[in-house]
Amino acid sequence: MNSLVLASLLTEPVGVSHYLVVGAVLFVCGVVCMATKRNALGILMGIELVLNGANLNFIAFGSPYLREASQTLGLDGQLMSLFVIVLAAAEAAVALAIALNFYNSFSTIDVDRADQLKG
């Protein structure tokens, strides 16, 4: 089966699953990024990657080119990803403001240093 997939990779149109795999790569990269970076802005970039992977899935499920039109989400997919993009912008603005505030108080944006409430 695996060899079949590879053989038809260039000669057949792609489907939803191809998009989902790409989305999964972005998602996983984002999660790993969030887990390993200690810089607050690096974590924010990981979040952007995760959101982008999710967006790719929405677009894939809404596209009439990837599966039969009757089974797609239609415009819902695109509308959802629009909302995600807009909310990601808002989230970045707030997170940046928090990071700047944090930097003003501690002169660093290393998230491990935010331990004042630790018992």
Binding site: L56, I59, Q78
Partner: peptide, 9 residues
């Protein structure tokens, strides 16, 4: 996104 037909997005 463009390839999937979502040009506006």
């Amino acid at each position: 996104f463009f390839l999937a037909g979502a040009d506006f997005v």
